Simulated assay, not measured.
Amino acid sequence: MTSTEHGHRHDGPDGQEEILDLDAEVLAEQLASIVAWLPLRSAPRRIVDLGAGTGAGTFALLDHFPDARVTAVDSSADHLRRVRQKASRAGVDDRVETVQADLDAAWPDLGTADLVWASASLHHMADPGRTLREIRQLVAPGGLLAVVELAGLPRFLPEDAPANRPGLEARCHAAADRRAAEHMPHRGADWGVPLADAGYTVEARRTVAVDDGRPHSEAVGRYALLVLRRMRDALAGELDADDLAALDELLDTDGPGSILRRDDLVVRTDRTVWAARP
């Protein structure tokens, strides 16, 4: 997955690993609710996390299924190193295996799994249909595939912010969506039809929304800063000068308009999960 979110090629500037870790921290309740909802016939003992990134899904699955082992697959050696470090600190390194692989190329031998977890990964694949067919070989009889898809990057600011450029974040997201449509046409897709075409039966589908109005934590501020910084880098040629200037004010951590100084940040995002069987 060529990803700015979770795990296949992870190109981009420094800070990507921190974004993934903050995503896992800030959206931990959302992720745990998705894992708990999965319509499993029995507790899985072997799980494969495809496009594991720095382990958000891996550790949520380990927490919920204490008898399971997880194989975390990703193309980034740095991200898998981080997964192993976290596993060691948590005392679960005996339950985690890491496999470095580019899933657009030759697939490694991953055996079979009771649960295959693919979060924010399929939309980065060159041929998602091929990937889904490969995954069928992984799912053990009676097992489950969980596909989790992002609607897009999270939003943080009120709609009328900042005061000098109301609606700035909405315009940034609109520009980002246009770029995604060109470079990642499957992002935000409804995976029901591709799953059926690849020979799966979708047993359940659920969308989990987050619109957290609680006072934001330091982690939310840092998360917002890094996400908007990446958007600014990607969209520098697509936003007008006034929007860029307003965005730079938000990203100036020493300035009075820094996003880290705001007390009105919330996290707004949603993710949809499809639970399917071959």
Results as ranks from 00 to 15, higher is better:
Thr112Glu: 15
Asp127Gly: 02
Arg130Lys: 09
Leu153Phe: 12
Trp117Tyr: 14
Glu134Ser: 13
Ala118Phe: 07
Gly142Pro: 00
Arg155His: 05
Ala101Ser: 15
Leu157His: 05
Pro108Ile: 12
Ser121Glu: 07
Phe156Gly: 09
Arg82Glu: 11
Ala90Phe: 06
Val99Pro: 05
Arg89Val: 11
Leu153Val: 12
Val147Ser: 06
Gly111Glu: 10
Arg133His: 02
Ala151Asn: 14
Trp107Pro: 08
Val139Glu: 08
Leu145Pro: 02
Glu97Lys: 13
Ala90Trp: 02
Glu97Arg: 15
Ala101Val: 11
Gln85Ala: 15
Leu144Ala: 08
Val96Arg: 01
Gln100Ile: 02
Gly129Lys: 00
Leu132Phe: 01
Leu122Ala: 14
Leu122Trp: 05
Glu159Pro: 04
Asp102Gln: 08
Trp107Leu: 13
Arg136Ile: 04
Gln100His: 04
Ala120Glu: 14
Ala151Asp: 15
Gln85Phe: 02
Asp102Trp: 05
Leu144Cys: 10
Val148Phe: 08
Met125Asn: 11
Trp117Glu: 11
Leu122Ile: 09
Arg84Pro: 01
Leu144Trp: 07
Ala146Thr: 00
Ala140Met: 12
Arg133Thr: 07
Val96Ala: 06
Asp94Ile: 05
Ser119Gly: 12
Leu115Asp: 05
Arg136Leu: 04
Val92His: 06
Leu110His: 10
Leu138Met: 12
His124Ala: 15
Arg155Asn: 02
Gly91Glu: 00
Arg136Val: 02
Trp117Ser: 09
Pro108Tyr: 07
His123Asn: 11
Arg89Asp: 14
Ser88Asn: 00
Arg95Asp: 07
Thr112Gly: 14
Val92Asn: 07
Gln100Lys: 07
Ala113Gly: 09
Ala118Ser: 15
His123Pro: 07
Pro154Gln: 12
Val83Pro: 01
Arg84Gly: 05
Val96Asn: 03
Arg130Pro: 01
Pro154Ser: 12
Ala118Met: 14
Ala140Ser: 14
Leu122Arg: 05
Leu115Glu: 05
Trp107Ser: 14
Gln100Glu: 15
Leu145Ser: 09
Thr131Asn: 06
Ala120Pro: 01
Ala101Arg: 12
Val116Gln: 14
Ala140Ile: 08
Glu97Gln: 14
Leu157Thr: 02
Ser88Leu: 03
Ile135Thr: 10
Asp160Gly: 15
Val139Asn: 07
Val116Cys: 15
Gly142Gln: 05
Val139Gly: 09
Lys86Phe: 10
Thr98Lys: 01
Met125Thr: 06
Leu110Ile: 11
Pro128Cys: 08
Gly152Asn: 06
Glu134Gly: 12
Leu122Val: 11
Gly143Glu: 06
Leu103Cys: 07
Ile135Pro: 03
Leu115Phe: 04
Ser88His: 06
His123Ala: 12
Pro128Trp: 02
Thr98Tyr: 00
Arg130Phe: 03
Asp94Leu: 13
Pro158Glu: 06
Pro128Glu: 08
Ser119Ile: 10
Arg133Cys: 07
Gly142Val: 03
Val147Pro: 03
Asp94Ala: 15
Gly143Ser: 11
Asp104Asn: 10
Arg89Tyr: 08
Thr131Val: 11
Ala105His: 10
